[in-house]
């Protein structure tokens, strides 16, 4: 039973990798990357049960956390071209790196 689930997840991961490679736009690739992370989390869990040692779930939990943060970081980078502080300035645009804001304080 766990072998069936592991094989199904493996086939799904290969299909999503093909889409990740061949995706025509950036958003296809980000979407497939996120889906691939979810598949990997479940695959790690199933693999732990399959080998009779379900202690890999800590790894799966950590992978889920990093996957979500990574997806949001990639999207933020392509939206603002910066990962750091992108809080809007009074002019409506995110502040350029190393410049002073309107109050003269460096962020």
């Amino acid at each position: 039973m766990f072998a069936v689930a592991a094989i199904a997840l493996f086939i799904g991961m290969i299909m999503i990798l093909i889409r990740l490679y061949a995706g025509p736009t950036l958003y296809d690739r980000v979407l497939s990357l996120n889906a691939f992370g979810t598949y990997t989390v479940l695959f790690i869990g199933i693999l732990g049960f399959l080998t009779g040692r379900p202690d890999f779930l800590d790894v799966a939990l950590l992978y889920a956390l990093i996957n979500f943060a990574g997806t949001i970081a990639v999207l933020k980078y392509f939206r603002y071209r910066a990962i750091g502080d992108t809080s809007p300035t009074p002019s409506g645009k995110p502040m350029a790196k190393g410049k002073l804001n309107d109050q003269g304080a460096k962020s």
Partner: peptide
């Protein structure tokens, strides 16, 4: 539950691979 979940995962992967548009892939 596990067999149905595996079926859903494979169906989602096939849809991600074969659908023609970004929004249908979502």
């Amino acid at each position: 539950a596990i067999l149905l979940g595996s079926a859903f995962m494979v169906i989602g992967a096939i849809g991600t691979l074969r659908f023609p548009d970004f929004w249908s892939r979502v």
